[in-house]
């Protein structure tokens, strides 16, 4: 049943103008960077900034809009013999998958036709992975918000605030903490803080890929000892998965018991 819902869902979303625009945005940008910069690692590094800002914002806004707009459609489907949990996963994957495909496709295709070395492919792969994770995480948050608040102005407003919080404000707080407690051993608390922000987590995973030599400098030992180990990597990935699971599960529970 999930597959049936997903099939039509994908057909619908893949034909929409905004998903095509979204894919073309990444394709165009990556292509231009290739034409200006040349080598693949540089392109991936430049795309990193874009990915960390655009993907959370786009995913959370599109996610909230999408769910608000399909409200009547969801009601209509629920009058048919469709189970709520099936419909939820159909709707979630129905938006998440096209967004992931549009992003990874948009970024990867120029790497194929411009040609890139193995190092650039690793970088691009890491970029695609992090971007995809951030996409589903923020679609999950958006779904939770849209199901929690029937008032769409409230839901969209909150989505924007959450996005702003994670992209900007949270890092400001971290910097403040670093300054206020400069005389204490801060490595572990700050590392722990970074686990509570999916964008920071994604950023650090990418930093380790791209700016390793810079990070190996002053704080190098800390990062290497933590993210360099299997345990550290597992914790980082586990945190990302938790970030994926918690909002999606919250949305899922809401969807099961919601009055439409």
């Amino acid at each position: 049943m999930i597959a049936k819902i997903l099939k039509y869902q994908l057909r619908d979303v893949m034909r929409s103008k905004w998903i095509i625009a979204y894919a073309l945005f990444f394709l165009g940008l990556t292509d231009i960077l290739f034409r200006f910069g040349g080598d693949g690692v540089r392109v991936a590094t430049s795309m990193m900034n874009v990915v960390l800002i655009v993907i959370p914002l786009a995913s959370i806004i599109l996610g909230a809009f999408y769910l608000y707009n399909t409200r009547e459609y969801i009601e209509m489907l629920l009058c048919h013999p469709v189970k709520r949990h099936q419909l939820f996963w159909g709707m979630f994957l129905g938006l998440g998958l096209p967004l992931v495909l549009a992003f990874t496709g948009g970024v990867m295709v120029p790497f194929i036709y411009h040609g890139a070395g193995p190092e650039a492919w690793t970088a691009a792969g890491m970029l695609a992975f992090t971007g995809s994770m951030l996409t589903v995480i923020f679609v999950g948050i958006a779904y939770y918000l849209a199901l929690r608040f029937d008032d769409r102005i409230k839901g969209l407003g909150l989505a924007l605030v959450i996005c702003l919080f994670f992209t900007v404000i949270y890092d400001g707080i971290i910097l403040l903490v670093i300054y206020m407690f400069a005389n204490y051993p801060l490595e572990k608390p700050v590392l722990a803080l970074s686990l509570f922000n999916p964008i920071d987590l994604g950023r650090i995973l990418l930093l380790l890929q791209f700016d390793i030599s810079a990070l190996m400098g002053l704080t190098g030992a800390v990062f290497r000892d933590f993210f360099g180990t299997v345990l550290g990597m597992a914790i980082a990935l586990g945190s990302l998965l938790l970030w994926l699971f918690v909002p999606v599960y919250g949305g899922f529970r809401r969807f099961l018991y919601k009055d439409f």
Binding site: Y8, Q9, R11, D12, V13, R15, S16, N69, T70, R71, E72, Y73, E75, M76, C79
Partner: peptide, 12 residues
């Protein structure tokens, strides 16, 4: 069920 306002996927 025939709803008062019908909305289906826009691009289907």
């Amino acid at each position: 069920y025939m709803p008062q306002i019908a909305r289906y996927p826009e691009n289907l």
